[in-house]
């Protein structure tokens, strides 16, 4: 790993479980903060989508968690961590169309099986670590400036 540039901004958002109506508010805050920090518009858009998907997963599947936003000169990172059931098969969860969303969530337009594929597609790097009956940690990295 090359030396990382010093952080310009760090912000922690706490997420409560099952609060789907309020979920979506962190992605709005993240978006506003990135705009205020002068982050490139393309990253603002991509990070907003990744944050929304991650936020919904925490709200729908976990017992609560948090999202940390890190901004440096060379990158933006979103770190999602939750306490919960974990993901039994990460490769399966990465498969477009695969979803374990309950019916009530599907009726609201979730559970298309596109959440993790969207997060991968919109970020420059996505790392998923999960422990059964423990929780899940996802790190999304967006590279600034240098492509």
């Amino acid at each position: 790993m090359p030396p990382k540039e010093k952080l310009l901004h760090r912000r922690v958002f706490i997420l409560l479980p099952g609060n789907l109506e309020q979920a979506g508010s962190v992605s709005g805050d993240v978006r506003r903060e990135l705009v205020a920090l002068g982050v490139e518009q393309d990253i603002v858009r991509r990070a907003g989508v990744v944050c929304f998907e991650g936020e919904m997963n925490i709200a729908m599947y976990s017992e609560g968690g948090r999202i940390i936003l890190l901004v440096a000169d060379d990158r933006v990172e979103l770190l999602f961590s939750d306490r919960g059931p974990g993901i039994p098969d990460i490769e399966l969860a990465r498969t477009p169309g695969y979803s374990t969303a309950p019916d009530w969530a599907r009726e609201l337009g979730f559970g298309a099986g596109m959440g993790i594929p969207n997060m991968e597609h919109q970020s420059d790097r996505l790392e998923i670590r999960s422990r059964l009956e423990g929780g899940t940690v996802i790190r999304a990295v967006f590279r600034r400036g240098r492509g």
């Binding site: 789907l20 109506e21 929304f52 609201l108 979730f110 298309a112 969207n118």
Partner: peptide, 26 residues
Amino acid sequence: LLSDVLAHAQSGDMWITHQRHMNVVA
């Protein structure tokens, strides 16, 4: 499908949907 919209809708599109809850605004 919200994730479908997140993946494929373009800025400036009119989004036609039956969904009518808070996450639609987000």
